[in-house]
Protein backbone atom coordinates (compact mmCIF):
# COMPACT_ATOMS: atom_id res chain seq x y z
CA UNK A 1 0.00 0.00 0.00
CA UNK A 2 2.79 2.33 0.99
CA UNK A 3 4.40 1.56 -2.37
CA UNK A 4 1.32 2.77 -4.22
CA UNK A 5 1.26 6.04 -2.31
CA UNK A 6 4.98 6.68 -2.71
CA UNK A 7 4.86 5.71 -6.39
CA UNK A 8 2.01 8.10 -7.05
CA UNK A 9 3.82 10.94 -5.38
CA UNK A 10 6.92 10.12 -7.42
CA UNK A 11 4.97 10.24 -10.66
CA UNK A 12 3.21 13.43 -9.59
CA UNK A 13 6.39 15.26 -8.65
CA UNK A 14 8.16 13.95 -11.75
CA UNK A 15 5.44 15.28 -14.03
CA UNK A 16 5.17 18.46 -12.01
CA UNK A 17 8.89 19.05 -12.32
CA UNK A 18 8.81 18.31 -16.06
CA UNK A 19 5.86 20.62 -16.64
CA UNK A 20 7.47 23.45 -14.69
CA UNK A 21 10.74 22.90 -16.51
CA UNK A 22 9.06 22.83 -19.92
CA UNK A 23 7.12 25.92 -19.00
CA UNK A 24 10.27 27.71 -18.01
CA UNK A 25 12.08 26.70 -21.21
CA UNK A 26 9.19 27.67 -23.45
CA UNK A 27 8.81 30.83 -21.44
CA UNK A 28 12.42 31.69 -22.11
CA UNK A 29 12.06 31.02 -25.83
CA UNK A 30 8.83 32.99 -25.93
CA UNK A 31 10.43 35.65 -23.78
CA UNK A 32 13.10 36.14 -26.39
CA UNK A 33 10.42 36.65 -29.03
CA UNK A 34 8.46 38.99 -26.83
CA UNK A 35 11.54 41.01 -26.08
CA UNK A 36 11.77 41.71 -29.82
CA UNK A 37 8.28 43.15 -30.04
CA UNK A 38 8.48 46.82 -30.81
CA UNK A 39 5.99 49.58 -31.29
CA UNK A 40 7.04 52.02 -33.95
CA UNK A 41 5.56 55.48 -33.62
CA UNK A 42 6.09 57.66 -36.70
CA UNK A 43 6.06 61.37 -36.14
CA UNK A 44 4.06 63.71 -38.33
CA UNK A 45 5.93 65.84 -40.83
CA UNK A 46 5.38 69.00 -38.85
CA UNK A 47 7.04 67.55 -35.74
CA UNK A 48 10.53 68.67 -34.93
CA UNK A 49 13.20 66.36 -33.45
CA UNK A 50 12.67 68.26 -30.21
CA UNK A 51 8.99 67.30 -30.23
CA UNK A 52 9.98 63.66 -30.74
CA UNK A 53 12.45 63.78 -27.89
CA UNK A 54 9.89 65.38 -25.58
CA UNK A 55 7.50 62.59 -26.47
CA UNK A 56 10.17 59.97 -25.79
CA UNK A 57 10.83 61.49 -22.37
CA UNK A 58 7.11 61.46 -21.55
CA UNK A 59 6.80 57.81 -22.57
CA UNK A 60 9.75 56.77 -20.46
CA UNK A 61 7.85 57.90 -17.39
CA UNK A 62 5.13 55.34 -18.14
CA UNK A 63 5.85 52.28 -15.92
CA UNK A 64 4.69 49.92 -18.67
CA UNK A 65 7.38 51.13 -21.01
CA UNK A 66 10.76 49.43 -20.89
CA UNK A 67 12.69 51.53 -23.39
CA UNK A 68 12.15 54.26 -25.94
CA UNK A 69 14.62 54.83 -28.75
CA UNK A 70 14.52 57.90 -30.91
CA UNK A 71 15.28 57.04 -34.53
CA UNK A 72 15.78 60.12 -36.73
CA UNK A 73 14.70 59.67 -40.35
CA UNK A 74 18.28 59.22 -41.61
CA UNK A 75 18.96 56.38 -39.21
CA UNK A 76 15.60 54.87 -40.07
CA UNK A 77 16.53 54.78 -43.72
CA UNK A 78 19.85 53.18 -42.97
CA UNK A 79 18.13 50.49 -40.90
CA UNK A 80 15.63 49.88 -43.65
CA UNK A 81 18.39 49.56 -46.23
CA UNK A 82 20.09 47.01 -44.00
CA UNK A 83 16.90 45.10 -43.50
CA UNK A 84 15.95 44.98 -47.16
CA UNK A 85 19.39 44.42 -48.61
CA UNK A 86 19.30 41.78 -51.32
CA UNK A 87 15.51 41.78 -51.44
CA UNK A 88 14.93 44.98 -53.35
CA UNK A 89 17.28 47.42 -54.92
CA UNK A 90 17.56 50.02 -52.19
CA UNK A 91 19.56 52.32 -54.39
CA UNK A 92 16.22 53.18 -55.97
CA UNK A 93 15.35 55.01 -52.78
CA UNK A 94 16.66 58.40 -53.75
CA UNK A 95 14.80 60.52 -51.30
CA UNK A 96 14.05 59.52 -47.72
CA UNK A 97 10.32 58.69 -47.41
CA UNK A 98 10.58 57.96 -43.68
CA UNK A 99 9.48 60.30 -40.91
CA UNK A 100 11.27 60.48 -37.57
CA UNK A 101 10.25 57.57 -35.39
CA UNK A 102 10.25 56.28 -31.83
CA UNK A 103 10.83 52.58 -31.13
CA UNK A 104 9.09 51.55 -27.94
CA UNK A 105 9.50 48.33 -26.00
CA UNK A 106 7.18 47.34 -23.19
CA UNK A 107 7.80 45.48 -19.96
CA UNK A 108 4.79 43.15 -20.14
CA UNK A 109 3.62 41.91 -23.54
CA UNK A 110 0.04 42.12 -22.29
CA UNK A 111 0.45 45.91 -22.24
CA UNK A 112 1.44 46.23 -25.90
CA UNK A 113 -2.06 47.10 -27.11
CA UNK A 114 -2.68 49.61 -24.35
CA UNK A 115 0.65 51.34 -24.81
CA UNK A 116 0.15 51.47 -28.57
CA UNK A 117 -3.23 53.13 -28.05
CA UNK A 118 -1.74 55.71 -25.71
CA UNK A 119 1.03 56.50 -28.15
CA UNK A 120 -1.42 56.83 -31.05
CA UNK A 121 -3.32 59.58 -29.23
CA UNK A 122 -0.24 61.61 -28.45
CA UNK A 123 0.35 64.90 -30.26
CA UNK A 124 2.53 64.86 -33.36
CA UNK A 125 2.20 61.11 -33.79
CA UNK A 126 1.10 60.34 -37.33
CA UNK A 127 1.03 56.58 -37.27
CA UNK A 128 1.69 53.62 -34.94
CA UNK A 129 2.75 50.21 -36.14
CA UNK A 130 3.40 46.94 -34.40
CA UNK A 131 2.91 43.23 -35.02
CA UNK A 132 -0.60 43.12 -33.68
CA UNK A 133 -1.40 39.57 -34.88
CA UNK A 134 1.84 38.14 -33.64
CA UNK A 135 1.39 39.68 -30.21
CA UNK A 136 -2.16 38.44 -29.99
CA UNK A 137 -1.27 34.93 -30.99
CA UNK A 138 1.64 34.77 -28.61
CA UNK A 139 -0.46 36.04 -25.75
CA UNK A 140 -3.21 33.54 -26.51
CA UNK A 141 -0.67 30.72 -26.64
CA UNK A 142 0.70 31.77 -23.29
CA UNK A 143 -2.73 31.94 -21.79
CA UNK A 144 -3.71 28.47 -22.99
CA UNK A 145 -0.39 27.04 -21.95
CA UNK A 146 -0.58 28.33 -18.41
CA UNK A 147 -4.22 27.28 -18.01
CA UNK A 148 -3.51 23.78 -19.27
CA UNK A 149 -0.50 23.33 -17.04
CA UNK A 150 -2.32 24.67 -13.99
CA UNK A 151 -5.18 22.23 -14.62
CA UNK A 152 -2.72 19.41 -15.22
CA UNK A 153 -0.80 20.14 -12.04
CA UNK A 154 -3.99 20.44 -10.02
CA UNK A 155 -5.11 17.07 -11.35
CA UNK A 156 -1.79 15.48 -10.40
CA UNK A 157 -1.83 16.93 -6.91
CA UNK A 158 -5.41 15.84 -6.31
CA UNK A 159 -4.73 12.32 -7.55
CA UNK A 160 -1.72 11.95 -5.30
CA UNK A 161 -3.65 13.38 -2.36
CA UNK A 162 -6.51 10.94 -2.86
CA UNK A 163 -4.19 7.95 -3.05
CA UNK A 164 -2.22 8.94 0.03
CA UNK A 165 -5.45 9.63 1.83
CA UNK A 166 -6.75 6.16 0.97
CA UNK A 167 -3.54 4.54 2.13
CA UNK A 168 -3.73 6.38 5.43
CA UNK A 169 -7.38 5.47 5.79
CA UNK A 170 -6.45 1.79 5.53
CA UNK A 171 -3.81 2.24 8.23
CA UNK A 172 -6.29 4.07 10.40
CA UNK A 173 -8.83 1.33 9.85
CA UNK A 174 -6.32 -1.35 10.77
CA UNK A 175 -5.65 0.48 14.03
CA UNK A 176 -9.23 1.50 14.82
CA UNK A 177 -9.40 -0.43 18.10
CA UNK A 178 -6.28 1.28 19.32
CA UNK A 179 -7.63 4.65 18.27
CA UNK A 180 -10.94 4.00 20.01
CA UNK A 181 -9.09 3.21 23.25
CA UNK A 182 -6.93 6.30 22.89
CA UNK A 183 -10.01 8.45 22.51
CA UNK A 184 -11.67 6.74 25.43
CA UNK A 185 -8.82 7.31 27.86
CA UNK A 186 -8.31 10.92 26.84
CA UNK A 187 -5.48 11.11 24.33
CA UNK A 188 -5.50 14.47 22.59
CA UNK A 189 -6.54 14.73 18.96
CA UNK A 190 -3.03 15.78 17.98
CA UNK A 191 -1.50 12.81 19.74
CA UNK A 192 -3.80 10.42 17.90
CA UNK A 193 -3.26 12.09 14.53
CA UNK A 194 0.48 12.53 14.73
CA UNK A 195 1.63 9.04 13.70
CA UNK A 196 -0.68 9.07 10.69
CA UNK A 197 0.35 12.56 9.67
CA UNK A 198 3.97 11.43 9.93
CA UNK A 199 3.21 8.46 7.73
CA UNK A 200 1.61 10.71 5.12
CA UNK A 201 4.51 13.12 5.37
CA UNK A 202 6.95 10.26 4.90
CA UNK A 203 5.07 8.94 1.84
CA UNK A 204 5.14 12.43 0.36
CA UNK A 205 8.79 13.09 1.08
CA UNK A 206 10.07 9.70 -0.06
CA UNK A 207 8.06 9.98 -3.28
CA UNK A 208 9.39 13.48 -3.87
CA UNK A 209 12.99 12.43 -3.20
CA UNK A 210 12.72 9.67 -5.79
CA UNK A 211 11.21 12.08 -8.30
CA UNK A 212 13.85 14.72 -7.67
CA UNK A 213 16.50 12.04 -8.20
CA UNK A 214 14.98 11.12 -11.54
CA UNK A 215 14.71 14.79 -12.50
CA UNK A 216 18.36 15.29 -11.65
CA UNK A 217 19.26 12.39 -13.93
CA UNK A 218 17.18 13.99 -16.66
CA UNK A 219 18.74 17.37 -16.06
CA UNK A 220 22.37 16.22 -16.24
CA UNK A 221 22.19 13.14 -18.46
CA UNK A 222 19.40 13.60 -20.98
CA UNK A 223 19.22 17.36 -21.39
CA UNK A 224 22.75 17.89 -22.74
CA UNK A 225 22.11 15.13 -25.30
CA UNK A 226 18.85 16.73 -26.36
CA UNK A 227 20.61 20.05 -26.73
CA UNK A 228 23.32 18.65 -28.98
CA UNK A 229 20.72 16.75 -30.99
CA UNK A 230 18.72 19.91 -31.66
CA UNK A 231 21.31 22.64 -32.11
CA UNK A 232 18.98 24.82 -34.21
CA UNK A 233 16.32 24.87 -31.51
CA UNK A 234 16.96 27.65 -29.01
CA UNK A 235 17.14 25.39 -25.98
CA UNK A 236 19.37 27.26 -23.67
CA UNK A 237 20.49 25.40 -20.58
CA UNK A 238 18.21 26.26 -17.73
CA UNK A 239 20.23 28.56 -15.58
CA UNK A 240 17.77 28.28 -12.71
CA UNK A 241 18.95 26.93 -9.39
CA UNK A 242 18.24 23.20 -9.38
CA UNK A 243 18.76 22.95 -5.63
CA UNK A 244 16.02 25.46 -4.93
CA UNK A 245 13.77 23.78 -7.48
CA UNK A 246 14.35 20.40 -5.80
CA UNK A 247 13.59 21.89 -2.42
CA UNK A 248 10.31 23.31 -3.68
CA UNK A 249 9.30 19.95 -5.12
CA UNK A 250 10.13 18.25 -1.81
CA UNK A 251 7.97 20.85 -0.12
CA UNK A 252 5.08 20.05 -2.44
CA UNK A 253 5.45 16.32 -1.72
CA UNK A 254 5.55 16.89 2.03
CA UNK A 255 2.58 19.24 1.93
CA UNK A 256 0.44 16.87 -0.12
CA UNK A 257 1.31 14.04 2.28
CA UNK A 258 0.44 16.07 5.36
CA UNK A 259 -2.78 17.55 4.03
CA UNK A 260 -4.03 14.24 2.62
CA UNK A 261 -3.41 12.30 5.82
CA UNK A 262 -4.75 15.12 7.98
CA UNK A 263 -8.00 15.08 6.06
CA UNK A 264 -8.39 11.32 6.08
CA UNK A 265 -7.62 10.91 9.80
CA UNK A 266 -9.79 13.89 10.62
CA UNK A 267 -12.71 12.44 8.76
CA UNK A 268 -12.29 9.14 10.57
CA UNK A 269 -12.00 10.69 14.03
CA UNK A 270 -15.10 12.79 13.61
CA UNK A 271 -17.38 9.84 12.91
Amino acid sequence: MQVTAIGTVTVMILLLGTVLFAQETLGRIGGNEIAKIEISAFMSDKASPADAKRLAAALKRDPRVKSVTYVPKAAGLRQMRDRLRGQIDTSLLTSNPLPDALRIRVVDPNAVHAVADVVRKMPNVANVEYQRDFVDRLLRLYDVMSKVSVAFIALLVITAAIIISNTIRLTVYARRREIAIMQLVGASGTYIRLPFICEGLLDGVIGAVLAVGLLAVGRWQLWPRLESALPFFPLQQADSNFGLFALQLLGVGALVGIVASWISVGRYLRT
Binding site: R177, E178, A180, I181, Q183, L184, V185, G186, A187, S188, G189
Partner: peptide
Protein backbone atom coordinates in the same frame (compact mmCIF):
# COMPACT_ATOMS: atom_id res chain seq x y z
CA UNK B 1 -10.65 19.95 22.11
CA UNK B 2 -11.69 19.71 25.78
CA UNK B 3 -13.06 16.18 25.56
CA UNK B 4 -9.71 14.48 26.36
CA UNK B 5 -9.60 16.39 29.61
CA UNK B 6 -13.03 15.01 30.55
CA UNK B 7 -12.07 11.49 29.52
CA UNK B 8 -9.11 11.56 31.91
CA UNK B 9 -11.49 12.31 34.76
CA UNK B 10 -13.92 9.57 33.75
CA UNK B 11 -12.85 5.93 33.48
CA UNK B 12 -15.07 3.64 31.41
CA UNK B 13 -15.42 -0.14 31.48
CA UNK B 14 -17.44 -2.26 29.04
CA UNK B 15 -18.94 -5.69 28.90
CA UNK B 16 -16.47 -6.78 26.21
CA UNK B 17 -13.37 -5.38 28.02
CA UNK B 18 -11.95 -3.75 24.88
CA UNK B 19 -8.40 -4.80 25.66
CA UNK B 20 -5.83 -4.67 22.86
Amino acid sequence: AKVPELRRKVGVVFQDFKLL
